[in-house]
Design a binder for these strands. Structure first.
Length: 265
DNA sequence: GCGACAG
DNA sequence: ATCTTGTCGC
């Protein structure tokens, strides 16, 4: 992957073009249907009650940042037992970031250390290598349908789900705008269903706004990462939510911040 | 030109 | 993303 050796404050339009093409090439390997090493069992005639047989380990990844410092960060991987959601593994990696945050290019900033964390556990203890990974960032809910979750999934060849805490605007009509989501979608979720499919004027389905708890009105944004369908991704995320943010990601987040407290202050 | 924009 | 305690409410 093409990332600079030294910190680049403001990557050129030419560089961004190269990255966009790299994403498009990797996207040819993207699988947007269920291709899982465990079984999805539909119990309900409406397809709402779902069970996962043979699913034992779920991963969560995140990158947290050190205050007053654009370059120091900590990448984290946690593995949770399913369905108990107890954390059985955690690992951290201190990172020197080479790029700032640029919407649409998050993977080039964060994916490398996450891959290294996955390689570590794959070698050390393949028995608990996660069957699926929840990623702090989007998958197909992305201008080129290839966000961090998809990027990581393809490179590591592991099923992933994209989980966004905030909505990423995509240029595909008014139903994909921030204001539409904040008004129409949030109101719809408040009243009724658990999820709202995010579909643009082009007919493209980008992901879903999901109300993860009965008690919350602020949705999370779920999208296909790799080797899973959107509907399966949604039901799996719902099974991982003790709070608004699914446990694998919440744990990765909380623990990496704790790691930072203990090592940078 | 300005606005919009995951983490 | 991150700085942060209490507090209002079901």
């Amino acid at each position: 992957m093409s990332v600079p050796t030294v910190y680049d404050d403001n990557p050129s339009p030419a560089q961004r073009d190269i990255w966009a093409r790299e994403q498009s090439e990797l996207k040819s390997r993207l699988i947007e249907v269920d291709d899982l090493d465990f079984k999805k069992i539909i119990l309900d005639d409406k397809g709402e009650k779902v069970e996962f047989e043979g699913l034992h380990y779920i991963g969560g990844v995140d990158v947290s940042f050190v205050e007053n410092n654009e370059q120091d960060a900590v990448a984290s991987l946690v593995i949770l037992k399913y369905p108990s959601l107890e954390v059985i593994y955690e690992d951290f990696k201190m990172v020197k970031l080479k790029l700032p945050y640029i919407a649409g290019f998050l993977a080039f900033r964060e994916v490398q250390p996450l891959l290294e964390l996955l390689n570590t556990i794959r070698q050390a203890n393949p028995m608990i290598f996660p069957h699926i990974i929840l990623v702090d960032g989007n998958g197909t809910l992305h201008p080129r349908r290839f966000g961090l979750a998809s990027h990581l999934g393809v490179l590591a060849n592991v099923p992933t789900i994209g989980v966004g805490k905030n909505f990423l605007h995509i240029d595909d009509g008014e139903r994909m705008t921030m204001s539409y989501v904040k008004s129409v979608v949030k109101e719809a979720l408040r009243k009724g269903g658990n999820s709202h499919i995010l579909q643009g004027d082009s007919g493209m389905v980008w992901g879903a706004a999901v109300r993860s708890l009965e008690s919350t009105t602020n949705p999370i944004y779920i999208s296909v990462g790799h080797r899973i369908s959107l509907e399966t991704a949604i039901s799996m995320v719902l099974k991982c939510c003790r709070y608004r943010i699914p446990e694998p990601i919440r744990q990765a987040d909380v623990r990496s911040r704790e790691f930072i407290r203990n090592h940078f202050s």
